[in-house]
Design a binder for these strands. Structure first.
Length: 545
RNA sequence: UGGGCUAUAGCCAAGUGGUUAAGGCAUCGGACUUUGACUCCGACAUCGAAGGUUCGAAUCCUUCUAGCCCAGCCA
């Protein structure tokens, strides 16, 4: 369920008062990196706010700084947003508007609202003043309109070196909001742009470009994060003085931060280079590509974002909140099958050596529509190593022990009798007997087993590589830097088996009974199944001591 | 120290003068169970602090405290 939020209230008021007939939102990423879970709030909220009120949603790349941007990021971002199911009504690039932006800047010049400044970057900084002191006006501030027109044209025509001149808005060097102290709106930068190639040598700054982009597209509600709050006066100033026909409204909300997760680009890069994680889509990360690879259903991310709402406060949400939405999405949709990820052999001494039988079991007891599958059963099985302890440790132990009887789910009761060890003293084979009377579905009711465990038939089971992930960051109360809390041993690779009757489809997710939800990884080949653990099952089991 | 924000449970988050202060996650009990799952029941808040206004305040006023953002030719 979605939490109500103040932006909905604003939209509903605007609709009711007839300020707008249609709501138009946008998600404006800069193509300079990949998206992560934190971006999902902005994407999904912009999307559903437009859809809920029958409006439109644009994807617009805010590509005004060619030195940082690349087309490979535009492709990656498009893929991630499409995966989330947030279909954009239109795809735009800020760079498509460069000519109009230039004309609007020229309008500012002609109105005496902007001037060409020859000060160096360093001098501009010095003139800007600081929190306690007003700035000083640029000596070039009073150039004539004619000269400014000529100079700005010359900037565009490439007559000056990079950085030699800038175009600045003429506002107020004494303004308490530093953003209003004659901000730079165009810089000279000879850089190859991924979209406009070498057509331009001047590029607009964010503060100038963004409100124009929104106005050009007829965006009604321009959502952004809190740090732009004190840019809003400038945003409004540009919309007004550039004489834009449509007037968008900027509304700020709090960024979605996730506690104990690596979000920063440079840190991720470092971890990838150090081999601590495998790649940008390593399932221990929370980039959207990593979540996709881990097998997280996109709708679970929608549920998560909606539950969080759109507050103006900023906290650190715990990731386990997402886990619960993932389980909820899988609960009735995923097939529930048997897999043993840390196998130990069980031999049934009273079951015919050459016999194999077929048992039928439902694929999901909470969703009969999924049908059933056939399980094979023989005298040699695998069970989970942790499901056996020679001696029952306490009355809470609901698994197998010597002399103790458990039910193999969808099969028979078995009782462990003796055990063999390998050279290291680890259990190698458990010898057990089964009771044919206890077959599942027979209605046998004479006695209760000491629990239910899962198994696979050793003679037919399919081998599988299973990757288990733990927290990449070790939660810690101490406020030490996150890079010092990296769990370098957070990935475990197991070699186990899944039941024979199952042929997983590409990226298919399953519940491995009693273990969790697992999704087929793209590393799977014709002769090697590879699964990622998407999320474990909840468990109230607490091992004693 | 200038400007802009934020503060409700361990973590999120509704609430906009009259409610027993929603809901989710986590935690702790208990029931049920062919998944120690699911489901179901139950527990869990002196609303950052102090004053004030009011019959009545998380909501209004005052003062204070804590935290975040801003001095790029980044976005």
């Amino acid at each position: 369920m979605e939490n109500k939020n103040f932006i909905r209230t604003i939209i509903e008021t605007d609709l009711k008062n007839g300020k707008h007939d249609e709501i138009v939102t946008r998600f404006p990423p800069e193509p300079n990196g990949l998206l992560h879970l934190g971006h999902a709030r902005a994407i999904i909220m912009n999307y559903i706010l437009s859809k809920d009120y029958g409006g439109r949603f644009n994807l617009r790349f805010d590509d005004t700084n060619p030195v940082k941007e690349d087309t490979i990021f535009v492709e990656g971002i498009k893929k991630d947003i499409a995966w989330l199911g947030c279909h954009w009504d239109a795809l735009y690039f800020a760079s498509d508007y460069f000519e109009e932006m230039y004309q609007r800047a020229m309008l500012l010049v002609k109105r005496g609202k902007a001037f060409v400044c020859d000060l160096s970057a360093e001098q501009i900084k010095l003139h800007r003043g600081d929190f306690d002191n007003p700035g000083k006006e640029s000596p070039y501030r009073d150039r004539s309109i004619e000269e400014n027109i000529r100079l700005f044209e010359a900037m565009r025509n490439g007559e000056f070196a990079d950085g030699a001149k800038v175009l600045r808005a003429k506002i107020d060097m004494a303004h308490p909001n530093i953003n209003m102290r004659d901000p730079v709106i165009y810089r000279i930068q000879r850089a190859h742009h991924h979209n406009t190639k070498d057509a331009w040598c001047i590029y607009p700054m964010y503060d100038f470009a963004h409100p124009l982009e929104d106005a050009i597209e007829g965006i009604t509600h321009s959502l952004c994060s809190l740090e732009f709050e004190d840019h809003r006066p400038l945003y409004d100033w540009f919309v007004k003085h550039c004489e834009m026909e449509q007037v968008p409204r900027q509304i700020e909300f709090g960024k979605l931060n996730i506690a104990n997760q690596i979000m920063g680009k440079r840190l991720i890069r470092k971890l990838v280079e150090a081999g601590t994680v495998d790649a940008w889509d390593d399932p221990r990360l929370i980039t959207l590509s990593a979540l996709r690879r881990r097998g997280v259903p996109p709708l679970a991310i929608h549920d998560f974002v909606k539950a969080l709402g759109l507050p103006k406060s900023e906290g650190h949400t715990e990731i386990n909140m997402l886990d619960e939405f993932i389980r909820e999405r899988f609960k009735v949709s995923a097939k529930r099958i048997h897999a043993v990820i840390d196998p130990v052999e069980v031999v049934l001494t009273n079951y015919p050596e050459d016999k194999t039988e077929t048992l039928t079991a439902p694929l999901n007891r909470e969703n009969e529509a999924l049908g059933s599958r056939e399980l094979t059963f023989s005298n040699t099985l695998y069970i989970e190593r942790e499901d056996f302890l020679e001696e029952k440790p306490n009355k809470k132990w609901k698994r197998l022990s010597l002399g103790i009887e458990v039910r193999l789910m969808h099969a028979y009761f078995i009782k462990a009798n003796t055990v063999d060890y390998d050279a290291n003293g680890n259990v190698k084979t458990i010898y057990a007997t089964y009771d044919p009377e206890t077959k599942s579905g027979s209605g046998f009711n004479e006695r209760k087993p000491n629990g239910n465990i899962h198994f696979v038939d050793a003679k037919t089971a399919k081998p599988a590589e299973i990757r288990l992930y733990e927290d990449l960051v070790i939660p810690d109360d101490d406020a030490q830097p996150i890079e010092e809390k990296i769990n370098t041993d957070s990935k475990q690779v197991k070699y186990g088996f899944i039941e024979s009757g199952i042929t997983p489809q590409e990226r298919e997710s399953f519940q491995f009974t009693r273990l969790g939800y697992f999704t087929l990884d793209e590393d799977t080949t014709a002769d090697r199944l590879v699964f990622n653990r998407t999320v474990a099952l909840r468990s109230s089991f607490k091992p004693k001591r």
